[in-house]
């Protein structure tokens, strides 16, 4: 089981990094989503894997529990990553709608036009 989880994390990380190195906004967003999955699973797995041992207390008998702390951290991370994805999507969309260009790299012309260059 550990090998499956670890290799899945590795594959998702690799694909995510490959995609964030592309030059258009949409693949980069997809890459960030993949990396988000990989990171969340990674963090979750630092609590070690357990089967049939959810961290819900059993009043009637002594049973093993999995580590609840990484789960709590990952739960908020999932929700926050939605917020982050939404902001990035909106930034990408605004940029594309304003310039009709979805390249992520700024050209030399962009830096000349950039504000805040008063001498």
């Amino acid at each position: 089981m550990e090998a499956l989880v670890a290799s899945a994390v590795g594959v998702m990380t690799a694909a995510g990094i490959f995609l964030i190195l592309r030059r258009r906004t949409f693949p980069v967003i997809l890459g960030l989503s993949l990396i988000t999955y990989a990171v969340n699973v990674f963090l979750f797995a630092t609590g070690r894997l357990a089967l049939d041992a959810p961290a819900v207390l059993n009043k009637y008998e002594e049973v093993p529990y999995t580590d609840p702390l990484p789960q709590a951290l990952v739960l908020t991370a999932i929700v926050i990553s939605f917020g982050m994805t939404a902001v990035v999507v909106m930034v990408a969309l605004s940029a594309y709608l304003s310039s009709k260009d979805d390249h992520i790299d700024m050209t030399a012309q962009d830096s000349v036009d950039a504000p805040g260059e008063d001498a």
Binding site: E2, A6, G10, A14
Partner: peptide, 24 residues
């Protein structure tokens, strides 16, 4: 080049979490 970097990073991440999961 990008693929090579990605694969190295992916293998590293996977190996790290594999090593973590097998240890207390």
């Amino acid at each position: 080049r990008d693929a090579a970097i990605s694969v190295v990073a992916g293998v590293g991440t996977g190996a790290l979490i594999y090593a973590v999961m097998l240890r207390d």
